[in-house]
């Protein structure tokens, strides 16, 4: 999927026009273990790149998900409230977190593509 971009924090972003859908990668969900709760931001919230956008929790760990780009939250994945396990079973599909209105598409440039991310993960051992 050519429109997928990845961050070194193991987040993915799928660009759909001027918005982007954000989630965590398969590698990230595996590191976390069974996800039990996802704390999502309010729709409408303005995020700057690097802001805490969401928190994902497993039984023994909690991890912040940072906004990979500037933008306002357009939509959040309400399904995660009742089924946080979607993050484990379908991290790049039904386990998405939120959708952002992209305000600066230039911020996508520094991110990895799928092959680059695969190499990056391989490098982590």
């Amino acid at each position: 999927m050519s429109d997928m971009k990845y961050t070194t924090d193991h987040e993915w972003i799928r660009v759909e026009g001027d918005s982007g859908v954000i989630g965590i990668t398969d590698y990230a969900q595996e590191q976390l273990g069974d996800v039990v709760f996802v704390d999502l931001p309010d729709v409408g919230k303005n995020l700057s790149k690097g802001d805490e956008a969401a928190v994902v929790e497993s039984v023994k760990a909690a991890a912040e998900v940072y906004a990979p780009l500037d933008g306002a939250v357009l939509e959040i994945n309400e399904a995660l409230t009742d089924a946080p396990g979607l993050v484990n079973t379908d991290p790049v599909g039904g386990g998405w977190f939120l959708k952002l209105q992209i305000s600066d598409p230039g911020q996508l440039d520094g991110m990895m593509d799928e092959a680059g991310y695969a190499d990056y993960v391989k490098g982590l051992g």
Binding site: F37, S58, V59, K60, A62
Partner: peptide, 12 residues
């Protein structure tokens, strides 16, 4: 729900 607690969440 231990992720609320200090031994996991530390300063948060």
């Amino acid at each position: 729900m231990s992720t609320r607690e200090q031994h996991i969440r530390r300063e948060k």
